[in-house]
Computed example of a mutant assay.
Amino acid sequence: MSLKNEIIVDTVPDSQISVIFVKSAIEENEKIYGPIFTRIASEHALQFEAEKLMDKPPENIQNLQEVTNYIINNLDKYPNGYCALMYGIAKAESKLQGSTGAGSKRSAFSAMKSIIESSGMLNSVIGTTGDLFEALDKFEEIGKMVKTAIPLRFIRGENNEVTMVSKNCPYKDACRAFINEGIGRLVGGQECINIICHAAVAEIITKKRFDYKLYEFDKPECRGKIFEV
């Protein structure tokens, strides 16, 4: 077992790769909810992106691929365009479930698992550790290689818990929109894209079950915890 108790990630994600990755998450969620999920997510992602560009949503954009192309073509103006798709996912889940939360966490897990399995990005580390901290360490190393890792700090705790701290999270635009619209967890508390993804990845690698809680947002750090259940 690793003796270190802290992981510091200081890389910036590749915007286009991140957009494509989040698009894949929408496509995987369609397998759970049906085509209506993609339609709702695409509509709200387009609206979000247009507002960030201080533009009117183009009327000729009709589907997810066209929305994705619109976002990619404007990354020079809004580099965090993947936030538009993340917002679209949350809005679709909110409308179809009534709120995000336990259901969305499991759908995020299912979507993430499907993407990872089809890409093979974690094939070499699945089942290699039951320790949450080590699993996150392995994932961050892969994230650096595929250029999706974002600035984060992980602190090992007791009882297979990890505190996750982000000072300059590139997903904050989406999270702020969640707060403004009252999109939260069914079980209470605020949603966090980072923690959802990392909890899901931890489950895939360790084959254990985890939950999470965000207890500080944008002050200016975001701070939360992932823990075994």
Rank of each mutant, 00 (worst) to 15 (best):
S2D: 14
K4M: 13
K4P: 08
N5D: 13
I7Q: 01
V9N: 09
T11M: 03
V12E: 06
D14R: 01
Q16M: 13
I17R: 09
K23L: 02
A25L: 13
E30S: 15
K31H: 15
G34A: 02
R39L: 12
R39H: 12
S42D: 09
H44R: 14
A45F: 14
A45D: 14
Q47T: 14
Q47C: 09
F48E: 06
L53Y: 06
D55E: 05
N60R: 12
I61M: 03
N69L: 13
D76W: 05
D76G: 07
Y78C: 05
Y78Q: 05
P79S: 04
C83G: 08
A84P: 10
M86E: 04
G88Q: 03
A92W: 07
S94C: 02
S94W: 06
K95S: 07
K95T: 04
K95V: 05
K95D: 09
L96K: 13
Q97P: 00
S99L: 05
S104P: 06
K105D: 03
R106T: 10
S107V: 15
A111D: 00
A111P: 00
A111V: 07
I116V: 08
S118C: 07
S119F: 07
G120Y: 08
L122S: 07
L122F: 14
N123R: 10
I126H: 01
G127L: 05
T128R: 13
T129Y: 12
G130D: 12
D131T: 00
E134L: 06
A135P: 09
A135V: 01
L136A: 06
D137P: 00
E140H: 09
I142M: 04
I142T: 05
K144M: 06
K147G: 12
K147S: 15
T148K: 09
A149M: 05
I150F: 06
L152N: 03
F154G: 04
I155Q: 02
G157K: 12
T163S: 09
M164D: 05
M164L: 12
K167H: 11
K167F: 15
C169Y: 04
D173H: 09
A174K: 04
A174M: 13
C175F: 14
F178W: 11
F178Y: 06
I183D: 04
G184E: 04
G184Y: 01
V187H: 01
G188P: 03
G188C: 04
Q190Y: 10
E191D: 09
E191N: 14
E191P: 09
E191C: 15
C192S: 07
N194P: 05
I195S: 10
A200T: 04
I204S: 05
Y212T: 12
L214H: 00
L214K: 02
L214Y: 00
E216K: 14
F217C: 13
E221N: 10
C222G: 06
K225E: 10
K225Y: 12
E228A: 02
